[in-house]
């Protein structure tokens, strides 16, 4: 295979992988606190639609507009997460059902589509978008130049975020407490950690990051709004957390691997290479997710998995 194609796939893989990194990190933090959030797809769509709305309807310097759009997407995502948090943490509705309800509420035939129509922003190209930055002037280096040193600010921010989450989880006291809440909420509670507060905060951060992942679609990847444009990326992000064994470093690798699967079809198609039907390439990330999930549940992997022990179980002090 031509090396140009390999580079093109890798460049595109970073693009498709970035929303997975963001939403995946958010889901990872929520699950580490013991809250399974199946609303990611809906939260991403809400982030995507509000970010695009703000970027279309505010006037000002591009950097400021984009910053506002990014913040709006995080607010929208965490607003959806707040619904999930109230239902599953306070009222103790089953987390699976509650998360699915959020995705249906906000999803492709729900609120994100409604707002897209009420705000009248569908089908037009965006006025503002994130563009590649020539980082350290290294853009023209062979191979790594186009892949690493000419990304947009969003991508660089996601890399910083990965390091921040790694540091937070393994090197700070709140990170330690977070892991304690996820593993054994009763013991954490006895230590004086506020379990409910930890779960709320991390579910909301998870929603904000999912919203951010959605915003990447409408502000950087392809600045246009169509119903359901995240096309299952939210679900892949949830799966990534599982086969990254709840570790941020593995999650990033997984996200870019799935970025490659997603990038393969479009890249080959634009170059007129049609060995396999386009539907095969479209289905590839989903097929690979099933295979990866199966592989992650074999007995070899089971000995290494770090599933938070209290994942999916509501915590209550007052009942046994």
């Amino acid at each position: 295979m031509n090396s140009n194609i390999v580079i093109a796939v890798l460049v595109s893989a970073i693009g498709f992988g970035t929303p997975l990194v963001l939403a995946g990190l958010g889901e990872l933090l929520a699950e580490r606190s013991g809250v399974l959030n199946l609303g990611v797809e809906g939260m991403m769509l809400m982030g995507a639609v509000t970010a695009f709305f703000v970027s279309q309807k505010t006037h000002g310097p591009t950097a400021l507009v984009l910053l506002l759009a990014v913040l709006a997407s995080m607010v929208a995502g965490s607003a959806m997460a707040l619904i999930h948090a109230v239902l599953s943490i306070t009222i103790r509705v089953n987390q699976i059902v509650s998360g699915l309800a959020v995705t249906i509420f906000a999803g492709i035939i729900g609120l994100s589509s409604y707002l897209g129509q009420v705000w009248n922003i569908g089908g037009v190209a965006g006025h503002h978008q994130f563009n590649g930055i020539d980082l350290f002037g290294l853009q023209n280096l062979p191979i790594v130049g186009p892949i690493i040193f000419s990304e947009d600010a969003f991508v660089y921010a996601s890399w910083v975020l990965v390091l921040a989450v790694l540091y937070y989880l393994y090197r700070t006291r709140p990170g330690l407490y977070l892991r304690a809440v996820g593993e054994n909420p009763a013991a954490a509670d006895a230590m004086g950690i506020n379990v409910t507060a930890y779960r709320y905060v991390h579910t909301l951060i998870g929603g904000a990051l999912a919203g951010l992942g959605g915003a990447y679609f409408t502000l950087a990847l392809a600045p246009i709004w169509t119903d359901g444009l995240t096309a299952g990326f939210g679900w892949i992000a949830i799966a990534l957390v599982i086969f990254a064994f709840w570790r941020p470093d593995l999650l990033v690798l997984g996200a870019y691997l799935f970025g490659i699967f997603s990038a393969l079809g479009p890249t080959l198609e634009t170059r007129g290479i049609t060995v396999l039907p386009s539907e095969f390439y479209s289905a590839l990330p989903f097929l690979m997710t099933v295979i990866a999930l199966a592989a992650a549940s074999t007995s070899w992997a089971n000995r290494r998995v770090g599933t938070p022990a209290s994942l999916g179980i509501p915590y209550t002090r007052e009942e046994g």
């Binding site: 619904i83 509650s98 309800a101 249906i104 609120l111 589509s113 409604y114 707002l115």
Partner: peptide, 22 residues
């Protein structure tokens, strides 16, 4: 607008799920 149907379904779900537990 089309998205209203899913939005309504979601809101009914939230209140019924919450109410059932309460």
């Amino acid at each position: 607008p089309t998205g209203l149907v899913g939005t309504m379904e979601g809101i009914i779900l939230f209140t019924v799920l919450g109410g059932e537990i309460l």
